[in-house]
């Protein structure tokens, strides 16, 4: 297979496009021209760093290193989920709800994939485990963030209605059921859309990358189908888990609505 290596000059040429875009957005006073340059620099630095890390990791295959990198990825994803919340839980819950549910769903799905489906030797082979986990976390993060955001903002807006239900003697579950269902659905819609568009509207990034790197298209497609299934289930379980736990946390043991628990 023919693999064409990119030179720094190639990337430099591509970067001029971003600089052009930044100039144009400055011209139209969009107020994001500096952010664009900064984001481009940031993505370059972060990717170069992870490239170095992966290179080191591949050279020193050890479970401890894999676990360490996984944890850093998880904690970073948890932080992003928290930062995206307009109304977040007070205290450790603000960080914990999203992080814990992402941990459970992403790690469980990745482990099953490694041990039962791909079966590399050893099972934690970083060439497989780290990219897989990265894709799981990246997508689960979106679902969890969307779901939690919808849950807390809806509950805040509809707090009087929820209380009306409680006053009428409904259980906390009945009182929040409709909102909870809606929040779970919102978190899972992007994943549904991605599956529907795959191959028709968009060529998924992972598959594109494999093909660009010279892989046989059908092999790339098989991997992409696997990834789609994993992402769908990981995102789904993670979102449902996070929204479920968060919804419970909005009520106390006396089934009172406790908005003082979110900002």
């Amino acid at each position: 297979m023919n693999f064409i290596s990119l030179t720094p000059l190639d990337l430099g040429i591509a970067s001029t496009l971003v600089i052009l875009l930044s100039l144009l957005s400055y011209r139209f006073a969009l107020g994001i021209s500096r952010q664009l340059i900064f984001a481009a620099l940031r993505t370059t630095v972060q990717l170069l760093l992870i490239g170095l890390v992966l290179k080191l990791l591949f050279a020193n295959v050890h479970l401890g290193w894999v676990v360490l990198i996984s944890m850093i990825m998880l904690l970073a994803a948890g932080r992003i989920v928290m930062e995206r919340q307009e109304r977040r839980f007070i205290g450790w819950w603000g960080y914990g709800v999203g992080t814990l549910s992402m941990f459970l769903s992403s790690f469980a799905v990745t482990l099953i994939t490694l041990i039962v489906i791909i079966q590399p030797e050893p099972w934690y082979q970083p060439q497989f485990s780290i990219p897989l986990l990265g894709m799981m976390l990246g997508n689960t993060m979106n679902g969890v963030a969307l779901g939690l955001e919808r849950l807390t903002t809806s509950v805040y807006q509809q707090r009087r209605i929820i209380e009306a239900r409680l006053i009428q003697g409904q259980t906390w579950c009945e009182a929040i059921e409709a909102i909870r269902r809606d929040a779970m659905r919102v978190g899972m819609v992007p994943m549904l859309n991605a599956m529907a568009a795959a191959g028709v509207v968009s060529l998924p990034g992972m598959m594109t990358g494999q093909i660009l790197a010279g892989a046989e298209p059908m092999e790339a497609v098989k991997y992409q189908i696997l990834i789609m299934f994993l992402i769908a289930s990981g995102t789904g379980f993670g979102t449902m888990g996070a929204v479920h736990v968060a919804a419970r946390r909005l009520f106390d043991e006396r089934e009172r609505l406790r908005l003082d628990r979110i900002t």
């Binding site: 409680l166 006053i167 009428q168 003697g169 409904q170 259980t171 906390w172 006396r254 089934e255 009172r256």
Partner: peptide
């Protein structure tokens, strides 16, 4: 349970 109490004590 909270909901049972509120069925008996209506507001």
């Amino acid at each position: 349970a909270g909901h049972l109490w509120r069925r008996r004590v209506g507001l």
